[in-house]
């Protein structure tokens, strides 16, 4: 019996297989757990612990280090507004204040209808289109209050569903090719290549 849905569990196992050590799958698995529940539930974290061979406390400890992981429920849309230096110079703080009034929730909280969570973010690396706004980690490039309001209206009415999935879903492109080669095969190829290199080096010396 696993807590994750069958499809998530399968993807999780695929992810674990990509790494030489299973703990390495921690962050991708936490993203999956978040896709499963919208945020990190204790059940989800416990399952990640089992999959990565760690303790639940270690999973929680690791997850809570990272801003993208939410240990409490969040809205369907997590709206992030950057107020770091480049955006600050372009009115980021004002945009954040405006977002709070449009969404009806204070920074760091979720709107009453559970639709939106507003976050003040650090630089999102899109500083030429400032102030920068992300919804569920998609760049929406709305730099004016009016554009933001229009976006919120779109979100409320499901007009951006295609482009912006509910919070938690991060990567929708599945890996299609070449799961990690078996370790011994890789080691073998590496040894062969290494030997060839040494031979060549020896020849070149001559």
């Amino acid at each position: 019996m696993t807590y994750f849905r069958q499809d998530i569990r399968l993807r999780a196992q695929e992810v674990v297989a990509l790494y030489p050590q299973k703990r390495s799958a921690m962050l991708p698995l936490l993203h999956l757990a978040q896709e499963h529940d919208g945020y990190l539930t204790p059940e989800g974290m416990a399952e990640v612990a089992e999959l990565t061979g760690t303790s639940p406390a270690e999973v929680r400890g690791t997850a809570s280090f990272y801003d993208m992981f939410h240990l409490e429920p969040v809205g369907t849309y997590v709206v992030g507004v950057c107020t770091n230096i480049a955006c600050l110079l372009a009115g980021g703080q004002e945009m954040l204040d405006h977002a709070a009034s449009t969404l009806g929730c204070a920074v760091g909280s979720t709107s009453a209808d559970g639709m939106f969570t507003l976050e003040e973010t650090e630089c999102l690396a899109d500083c030429n289109i400032a102030p920068c706004v992300q919804v569920n980690h998609r760049f929406v490039r709305t730099t004016t209050p009016d554009a933001l309001d229009a976006l919120v209206d779109d979100l409320r009415n499901g007009r951006r569903d295609e482009e912006i999935p509910a919070h938690g879903t991060l990567i929708r492109v599945r890996r299609s090719g070449g799961l990690r080669a078996p370790a011994d095969q890789v080691a073998n190829e590496r040894a062969v290549a290494h030997r060839a290199r040494e031979e060549r080096a020896a020849q070149e010396k001559k």
């Binding site: 962050l27 990272y66 992300q134 980690h137 492109v173 090719g177």
Partner: peptide, 15 residues
């Protein structure tokens, strides 16, 4: 992690 689109595009490029 905040590069959702970038993550998808790089994964696609790998595929």
């Amino acid at each position: 992690g905040e590069f959702a689109l970038g993550l998808e595009r790089v994964q696609q490029a790998i595929n």
